[in-house]
């Protein structure tokens, strides 16, 4: 029933230019499931938060860092996203997850990264160990399509279907 129907792995340098790149990659991969644009926007935002955390916090003052993204799409329209770094780790996860808590106020970090990830996905899990890194796993089940069947997936992959226009972006 819950079969993994597609999978991708990505790794890239932990530099801020790659925040947009990672969103674009996640976005085009999730597009294979033909999500609503609002769902796609939520996933992009959640991913942007997690990746930014890796760049701003995990590898702070530590050049050469790498961020890994592992994604799976399931037959029940569940999207699994794992974002991992090998940076400094989080000293106190509960505290880090409190809204408005930030260790970088001078850079105008709002301390809302985890709050956004939590709000925009169905499930968020964070594992971290000091000096070894942090892994964030997010899962979100996309709403059903009007017509069923994942045979559409091939069409989507071939660029045959467009994103549903149930909501408009702007």
């Amino acid at each position: 029933m819950k079969k993994c129907i597609n999978e991708m792995k990505l790794s890239f340098s932990a530099v801020s230019e790659n925040e947009a790149f990672s969103r674009a990659c996640v976005s085009s991969f999730v597009a294979l499931l033909d999500p609503y644009i609002s769902e796609l926007a939520e996933l992009k935002t959640a991913v942007s938060e997690a990746v930014t955390n890796c760049i701003v916090h995990a590898y702070r003052g530590q050049p050469g860092g790498v961020v890994w993204i592992h994604m799976r799409l399931y037959s029940d329209r569940r999207v699994y996203i794992k974002i991992r770094d090998k940076g400094c780790g989080i000293a106190d996860i509960d505290r880090a997850m409190q809204p408005l808590f930030t260790t970088a106020p001078e850079e105008e970090r709002a301390g809302l990264g985890f709050a956004v990830m939590e709000s925009f996905t169905d499930q968020l899990r964070v594992r971290s160990s000091r000096q070894r890194g942090t892994t964030v796993v997010m899962e979100k089940t996309l709403s059903e399509k009007e017509k069923d069947g994942y045979s559409d997936l091939q069409d989507t992959a071939a660029g045959g279907r467009k994103l549903r226009a149930g909501t408009s972006l702007c």
């Binding site: 930014t52 970090r109 709002a110």
Partner: peptide, 15 residues
């Protein structure tokens, strides 16, 4: 009105 994407960095910007 012309913003195409924003994460919490935008909140930091406003604050």
């Amino acid at each position: 009105s012309g913003v195409t994407f924003m994460d919490s960095s935008g909140i930091g910007l406003v604050m």
